[in-house]
Design a protein around this nucleic acid. Structure first.
Lengths: 214, 214
DNA sequence: CGGAAACTGAACCGCCCGGTCTAGGATGTC
DNA sequence: GACATCCTAGACCGGGCGGTTCAGTTTCCG
């Protein structure tokens, strides 16, 4: 009988409480929408469908709730990866497919929201910047770098400094699109705009790192 | 705007206030340091060495003061340009020199502060994003594009889509450095880190756009 | 000089915020 | 039914905020 104690059947469940997830979900919604300062605890409790007392029963203050929410969002963000791409395909194919993934991930509403919050609050919450960096750019880089290493081994590419090359590739995928998105000049982008950037990124990358260049 | 030599005439409107510039300067300091929400009007007045009544004599509310300050900062930012570079030099030289300027400008404390504020407040101040974009990335792009056009005419480069190429070059200069700076993982960077990125950017760019490639 | 305009410091207002507290309603287990 | 646990609504608190007011001081200029 591992779970049975004399007083309670499931101590961990009781410790956590039934509405714990509701609180986090409400906080997520409001924090991502309004940022830390403008998000009021009352609004969070309302969005969570929970009383303020319950909220403060789980989290001692607003800051810790915020930290917990964004830690989770950073984890969540780390999930969006390139794993499903067939790394055995020709390098150009892989790069184009990766570029498309990268672009759509970078421009997504979710990434934008997390990015903006992390930028805005990275001084008051010093861990935040590192968390975002590790769950986003760093992970992306290491995935790309792994492919570049493999493609170099196969003789398709010729990359010496994989981490630099990976960063460059990711950076090339942003070209203008990202900036315009961050500053809210555009919400969505036409397919040909995106293709122009992607094709351009791959062309530039292959011109430098393709194995068959003279 | 007013505030000049004691002999100037125009007592009408110009003479309106002696402390106008002080207010803007104090607001600049506090807003860039704390952002819009966390900056208190009292703190601004204190930093400006001015009473709150005086401040409100010039600006009807905090929002307008903020807008005015950041409009000016965007203009100021636009000043940091590449004009002093000798565009007649060989393309590789020009690109390296431009890259160095770009990197140091992007990583500067000033640009970082303005960038962060614009990102954080671009939803509540919709003009802000556009202002920053035009005074920063867009200006930079058109300067680079102009050079690329000229270098292509000279036969040193072979660029068809200058604006894309310009964006790509600027983007390449960021590689990792910018991200780490934005998220406050590093304050300063070693010279070899910077050179690695710059040389890498120029190498990638020339591999694609150099005229003498096969 | 004299008077107008700019400026001051502090008190003040109403509001909303983060956080606490209380009295009581559900729910579940003996 | 008794008891404990979780949760609820909302009143409440101290404090800081943006913004106003005012009585008095400084600065400027004819």
């Amino acid at each position: 009988m591992p779970q049975d104690s004399p007083m309670t059947a499931k101590p961990d469940r009781i410790r956590k409480g039934r509405k714990f997830d509701q609180v986090l979900e409400g906080a997520r919604e409001i924090f991502l929408r309004d940022g830390f300062e403008r998000a009021s605890v009352d609004a969070i409790a309302r969005a969570a469908g929970v009383s303020k007392a319950t909220l403060y029963n789980y989290f001692p203050d607003k800051r810790l709730l915020f930290s917990e929410v964004l830690r989770r969002e950073c984890d969540r963000q780390a999930g969006a990866a390139l794993h499903e791409i067939d790394m055995a395909a020709p390098a150009e194919t892989v790069l184009k497919s990766a570029a498309r993934h990268i672009v759509s991930a970078l421009l997504s509403e979710f990434n934008q929201a997390v990015f903006r919050i992390c930028v805005a609050e990275s001084d008051r919450f010093p861990d935040l910047g590192a968390a975002f960096y590790q769950s986003g750019p760093m992970r992306l880089r290491s995935e790309i770098a792994a492919f570049l290493r493999e493609a170099t081994r196969r003789g398709e590419l010729s990359v010496e400094d994989e981490t630099l090359a990976a960063d460059q590739f990711a950076e090339l995928c942003k070209a203008d699109l990202y900036t315009r998105r961050v500053f809210r000049l555009d919400n969505g982008f036409a397919e040909d705009e995106i293709r122009r950037v992607i094709d351009g990124a791959v062309a530039v990358f292959l011109a430098r790192y393709g194995a068959n260049r003279t």
